[in-house]
Amino acid sequence: MSVQTASAPAATAPPGRPARRQPLFDNAKFAAVALVVCAHTWMPLLAEDRTIAAAVLTIAAFSMPVFITLCGWFARPGPGRPQVDGARLISQLVVPYLVFQVLYNLVGMVLEKRLAPIALLEPRWLTWFLLSLLVWRLSVPLWTALRHPLAVAVLVSAGSGAMAAFPEELALGRTLGFLPWFVLGLVLRPDHLALLRRPAVRRGAPLALAAVFAAVWLAAPKLLNPGWVEYTQSAAELHVGYPVWVGVRLALAALSLVAGAAFLALLPEGRTRWTALGGASLYVYLLHGLPLKLVQASGIYHARTLHHWYTALPLLGACALTLAVLLATPAAVRFFGPLVQPRLDGLLLRPRSAEPVHPDGQP
């Protein structure tokens, strides 16, 4: 698929050659997934300090939505590209999901020191994203057929909160909760993104992020349940009335939209030292959960030093960013490639392209 940046047409390529990658999107993918790692690293300290809580909740509120919106952007149908590519979904989502679902369940049994059956349709830890993305990608023909797909997706997401509880199967809470962000990526156009590259918008982006952080800081004591920003619990599970649940979710969505737009506006459009790491964003996402679980099991979060925002945020943040960079290096991609991108040429009717392709659709 030919991809366009926010300000210029996508580079054309000679026949038979793939279109040139656009640095802005790789910059956005790596920056977003690196912030996801930071949020997950800080999350165990959510209730320790109000500033830590505000930082965790602010980043969690927009980093995953941005990442999912980018997935929707690259899932848009285009000339010569089917709306649903079965071979690609099997190789990029289904098989990696099964591999990591089994892996995370086995690691969980070891850490919890108990045996438990492996339920393949009940995602463990980070695998929910692959299963949800599979559902979203399969539903693309539905959204492209609707006149107002984003409005319908918002209604579906809002209506899900009326359920007594979200079942574990298919990560239903997150699948429905994050659905509008995926559909947002489907309906966005280059001229929409071009607005974020305007000088006035870029100058105002830091103020917008600061305002979102201030709003979250004020509301932090009421949002300490991660279910609010992780989209894992219905109104009944959060012990609030349905109108309150809808109101809070809509407010958080508005803050997420403002913060996500400001985040994208601040990113460089050209190549940087970390642009190439964006192509391995899925490696970072799927693999960072294992070391984090081991660190949590070690008891390091009980250290008194980590109970203050001025030590916990920079120390753990530096470790998280280092981990994100290491997992995106070419050496890590080669080593973990059989897990994240297993080759299935002998099992699929259509051979895989020689160019590695990631679940967001961009090579």
Rank of each mutant, 00 (worst) to 15 (best):
S63P: 00
Q92H: 11
A219P: 04
G177F: 10
A320P: 07
A32Y: 12
P180H: 05
A331M: 12
T127A: 03
V295F: 14
V66K: 04
A312W: 13
D345H: 04
V36M: 15
P96Q: 06
P167D: 10
S2A: 10
V3P: 00
S157V: 01
T232L: 13
P243M: 06
T127L: 13
P18L: 09
D191L: 06
L134W: 12
N105H: 11
P351A: 08
A254L: 15
H302V: 02
S132E: 11
F263Y: 04
V154K: 06
L315H: 01
A116R: 10
L348K: 02
V229S: 13
A253I: 03
A165I: 02
V325K: 02
R203M: 15
L188K: 01
A280R: 09
R76C: 13
L287E: 10
L24F: 15
T311G: 04
L115Y: 10
L155N: 01
S132L: 07
L266S: 05
L186G: 05
T232G: 06
A312N: 05
T311S: 15
G80V: 09
G361L: 03
L196A: 04
A354Q: 13
A208R: 01
I68S: 04
A262W: 12
R271N: 10
L306G: 05
L287Q: 08
A261P: 00
V99N: 11
I68Y: 11
V340T: 02
E122P: 04
P123Q: 10
P359R: 03
M43F: 08
E122H: 14
F336K: 02
A261R: 04
A61V: 03
L184H: 08
A312Q: 10
V102G: 00
V248Q: 11
F67Y: 14
V248P: 02
T311F: 15
T311E: 13
L103P: 00
L349R: 09
A262K: 01
T41Q: 09
F74S: 00
L252W: 08
R114D: 13
P9G: 01
L326C: 11
G161H: 04
D49I: 02
D26M: 06
Y231T: 02
Y301G: 09
L218A: 11
R203H: 14
V258A: 14
R20A: 15
G299F: 12
L134Q: 07
S160W: 14
T127W: 13
Y301R: 03
R198A: 15
A236C: 05
A236T: 08
D26G: 03
I59H: 06
V248K: 07
A34C: 13
A324V: 04
V156A: 12
H307M: 08
A34H: 06
V244R: 01
H40L: 06
V110Y: 08
T311M: 12
A13W: 14
S63H: 12
